[in-house]
Design a protein around this nucleic acid. Sequence first.
DNA 1: CTTCGACAACGAGAATACGCATATTAATGA
DNA 2: TCATTAATATGCGTATTCTCGTTGTCGAAG
Lengths: 224, 224
Amino acid sequence: MRILVVEDEPKVASFIRRALEEESYAVDVCTDGTGGLDWAQAVDYDLIILDLMLPGLPGVEVLRRARAAGVKAPVMILTARSEVDQRVKGLDAGADDYLTKPFAIEELLARARALLRRAGGAPTGILRVDDVVLNPVTREVTRDGQRLEFTTKEYALMEYLMRNAGRVLTRSMIAEHVWDLDFDTFTNVIDVYISYLRNKIDKGRERSLIQTIRGSGYMMRSDG
Amino acid sequence: MRILVVEDEPKVASFIRRALEEESYAVDVCTDGTGGLDWAQAVDYDLIILDLMLPGLPGVEVLRRARAAGVKAPVMILTARSEVDQRVKGLDAGADDYLTKPFAIEELLARARALLRRAGGAPTGILRVDDVVLNPVTREVTRDGQRLEFTTKEYALMEYLMRNAGRVLTRSMIAEHVWDLDFDTFTNVIDVYISYLRNKIDKGRERSLIQTIRGSGYMMRSDG
DNA sequence: CTTCGACAACGAGAATACGCATATTAATGA
DNA sequence: TCATTAATATGCGTATTCTCGTTGTCGAAG
């Protein structure tokens, strides 16, 4: 699986690269529109992640030309929250999904997986802890066969916990993986969302699947 | 284990501090080079994390002077990716490791552990005294295979004792490595926590693993 | 060997920090 | 607009940390 990231902010770019690489994708990063277009045509990527705010050639134009040149790879566009019309233009120009900045890296990964699957069979990698089953591809979570509904944030947190079942995850780690770059340390959102998850997962059970490690963070109980 | 962080960006600094504290290290933060140098000389740190881009005194200079003044603590350098020149790579400024920004907090933690381990002379990282085993990564302590539960402070003290098994540790040394800057000398918290540890470790044994050195401090018995 | 003083150990309770739930406010999208 | 989700603020209960007074122990001097 090879992914092209076209993003001019070095900070964001390297953050995305790292995250994707950790998921064992091969990643190429390009910092300007023209170069991105060149690469998109030169290599048969499985996915292209494209920032719309680019120096030189605007993102929408990159996309349009790439499609015109026969690039088939699914494209995920990144936009600022305010640039709604840009987003629309992007989708018109042939994008398959969009993500607004700032975003949580887990969300980007989840969507990337979805796009890759749609394009052609990515590995399933179903996560299972106790009788909770999480399917990262469909984003479905069940307990005891019963479907559980999560919001985006809740799901991202859930997936992160499941992926690291049996390991202690400190709040810093959770912040870094589930929230975005400028996370305020002096807040209790994480606690609150853990509480949301527990409400949905553990309703009416005596022992929570998510354990609190006082002074450090949380841990998803692993089997046994 | 006490760590000095010299970093001027408040956001980054507090993020690092938090992550380290969640791993039960005692952490001091300094926002300028001159102050950092002073602290490095004043306190016997187990690790120093040093940003190279600092107001006032540049990081490399802080490091050079600290080494000249006889500071032995391992030093991890933080630097922007673009500023990694040969000197930094060769680590000939006297650093023991370097990390480029931006970085994943887990990587910083992992490297910190590695440096502390190297300095502590434990090749595997796992500390063992008699039948007590302490794993700094998972922060699990067992005696005879039996899991022992510690609070954050208890664990920090325990790790410090284990790392220095066979060596007499005075109360001031313990205070310096396990408690923070404003430690009240006229208190007996240390004695109290030693007692807590003994309760948990030595329950029902005749000879304590932790020996009292009357008039000086305490010592973790080393094997034999 | 005894006595005394200094030091350490212990127990109990006060103070604090932390996690959790709930309510409230803010942002986002239909 | 309203409904849904995200984030913040606050109050409460409890685990942890610390203080303090008392009891116990060690060791040196008499």
